[in-house]
């Protein structure tokens, strides 16, 4: 019965129309805000991804600097020609960070 009155009101009164309109607007706003919040969460996630990417980069850099200062024994030997002293090759990567390809390091023996 109320619905009928409402329908009647919508058809006859501009005041009644505003109520529905406000409700629709709020609904729209809420849905839009929720979507944006989702977007924000995504933005946060992207940002922390960028942050961790940078941290991995710094870790890779630090490992390489350490390797240059204190050579490791687990390096592949590259012989640039048979008589040459060995050139040591290592691919430095961070375990579990597949998205970050390893960095190649060459190091002369002496």
């Amino acid at each position: 019965m109320g619905t009928n009155r409402l329908t009647q009101l919508r058809e006859t009164s501009p005041n009644g129309f505003s109520l529905v309109e406000v409700m629709v607007s709020f609904l729209f706003l809420t849905v839009a805000s929720l979507a944006l919040l989702q977007g924000f969460e995504l933005a946060f996630r992207h940002y922390s991804l960028a942050q961790s990417h940078w941290k991995v980069t710094v870790e890779l850099w630090n490992r390489i600097e350490q390797l240059r200062a204190n050579p490791s024994t687990q390096e592949e030997v590259l012989q640039i020609f048979p008589a040459a002293r060995p050139l040591y090759r290592t691919v430095v990567s961070i375990p579990g960070r597949a998205e970050h390809s390893g960095w190649e390091v060459l190091r002369a023996e002496k």
Partner: peptide, 28 residues
Amino acid sequence: QWKMATNVESQLYSLVLAENGIEYARTL
């Protein structure tokens, strides 16, 4: 920021690679 993180990575790696070349030259 993401671009910056990627760019820092590439810039640092290019430096690592350039130094690899110096090590190659040292051997040669």
